[in-house]
Amino acid sequence: MKVLVPVKRVLDYNVKARVKPDQSGVDLSNVKMSMNPFDEIAVEEAVRLQEAGTATETIVVSIGPAKAQETIRTGLAMGMDRGVHVQTDDDLEPLAVAKILKAVAEAEGADLVITGKQAIDNDYGSTGGMLAALLDWPIGSAANSMSKDGDALTVVKEVDGGLQTVKLQMPALVTTDLRLNEPRYASLPNIMKAKRKPIEAKTPADYGVDTTPRLKTLKVTEPAAREAGIKVEDAAALVDKLKNEAGVL
């Protein structure tokens, strides 16, 4: 079973996003960038499948600028076999990303694609679902756990009311939620080893995908700020304020 994991280079989750003064977007100059946390979980799951002998080959792909190679190297250091870098300086929308990933999945003959359930920059949460639809594959979204049984994949999904289990025919696509696993830290020897693993260089044009954006960003602004309120002395004062001042009890 070949497993393909797409990863995205995003603003590190510990860094607060700052809106540019000209309202054109979020300032990404001179800030720490990392692999999207949900994608890290996807990489970890693929590596575990390989360690368990379920996956025969694991491929990590990233679509983005030259520096996206660093993100691919992170995946390789965690244990993925090889990388594909589709280089573009444009900030592609999920639809274009899904179209490129479809072509990559087909070229690689992937049996399973594991994606993060959302990227923490644009928060669309749509790439996985779009890719599954374009491939005409079934999907297990927001996976809490997964197991392969013959040609079927059982996925326990996190849903609003609790957990739901679905059975998918392979090939299939799974999107990861936070509880699927805890990603490992790459060890120094593995980081060194990853430097020698191959990364294939591609462009969106190689796959014949039109990446023209469908959405025009008119402006990006700071959210309405919420004013800090007051500190109260004790529990009695808190109840009094909530009841008599705010009127919410």
Binding site: V26, I120, D123, T217, L218, K219, T221, E222, P223
Partner: peptide
């Protein structure tokens, strides 16, 4: 976007 740290107006 960005966990609500920015609001994007898109057309």
């Amino acid at each position: 976007i960005y966990a609500g740290n920015a609001m994007a107006t898109v057309q």
